[in-house]
Write a protein that binds this DNA or RNA. Sequence first.
DNA 1: ACGTGTGAAACGTTTCACAGCC
DNA 2: GGCTGTGAAACGTTTCACACGT
Lengths: 211, 211
Amino acid sequence: MSELEAKVLPEATVARLTQYLRALNALESRGLERTSSGVLAKEAGVNPAILRKDLSWLGSYGTRGVGYVVRELSEHINNTLGLNRDWRVLILGAGNLGRALSGYAGFTTRGFKVRAILDVSPELVGTEVGNLRVEPRNDLAEVVRREEINIAVLAVPGDAAQDLVYELGELDVNSVLSFAPKPLVVPRGMNLRRVDLSTELQILAYLAVQP
Amino acid sequence: MSELEAKVLPEATVARLTQYLRALNALESRGLERTSSGVLAKEAGVNPAILRKDLSWLGSYGTRGVGYVVRELSEHINNTLGLNRDWRVLILGAGNLGRALSGYAGFTTRGFKVRAILDVSPELVGTEVGNLRVEPRNDLAEVVRREEINIAVLAVPGDAAQDLVYELGELDVNSVLSFAPKPLVVPRGMNLRRVDLSTELQILAYLAVQP
DNA sequence: ACGTGTGAAACGTTTCACAGCC
DNA sequence: GGCTGTGAAACGTTTCACACGT
């Protein structure tokens, strides 16, 4: 059976599962105990067919002719996504973006805890960000160990990003979310996701020009 | 000829074109005048085949056996993406994220200019953000007209986002970049792109759990 | 000889449509 | 009757491989 156990869920499915979770929470807080692919899909902003196909990857958790039990489904997606454990986040860069991210609601919910924030600039080191104090960039290794970091967020200028990626890899931090506007070379075994704000604007510009 | 003139370039191609632009800039600043799909692809972090296929949508701008002229290609992509005009950006929400975005380098390059920033909170209205002053949310219509806004960025809590989207649609601002952690219903003709930070973290969590 | 430009194959994702079960 | 779960079709995207122009 255990061949080499490749990735199980399609990438696109994983992205949508997070949306279903949010939608299920919304339904639950509205007092609903059961739902259907139609209702849930509407809440999540997708079409019902793909929602059912996505859920079918997790096994049969619905009842034909009836639908899904909100709490049960929500629990199951949570487990599948690995959100039933603690994720300790380190933010690299205490500029505007880094500070904004450390307080961002989405970053502090569902098991994600921002545990430390680092910067190179001596002016920023020591200043307060939320309930954290900015620590020096050179303490990276020590901070990673002390706080048992498992996810890093790069909110640094493009030039600094690549070195940090390598260093994080050495320290066995293998999940990185980068806001640096550059493609990065990722060490073996690292999962890196990029959010590129200027790319998003440029795509909008293109779409706006279309007739 | 002009049927109804649908979108010309595949979505995925548009996203990569922005990366090629950045890569071309990097090559140019290194003094290179010519390049090839191999070199450029490496710089942009993609494979050469798809780069050539992407560029073929724009027409033939390379020379067989030789490659591409950096400046020429760069210019051409710029035009195709509509980056040869002015884009006047409005930021909605002057919280941490909104303030960070207004100063973010990617937001201020290549023809994009942040022209105004709005917030509902009386405490924030009147405060300075970069070289702008936060204006009251209720002045939305007036500000859009005054600054001739054509792109809006939503850095507001999820609940406020949907109303703003409708209102922006009325005001003929049809390009919106949303950071609200919710799917939004978009008015006809509007282009909306979402950046969902907590979704990104959750995807990382899932990937990290994979064996 | 070399690197582009591009059909054709391979792959991934979404939509359709309906059999199966409650 | 209604809604799930899922093969099969449709669509979109990436990769391959090579003919063609310089």
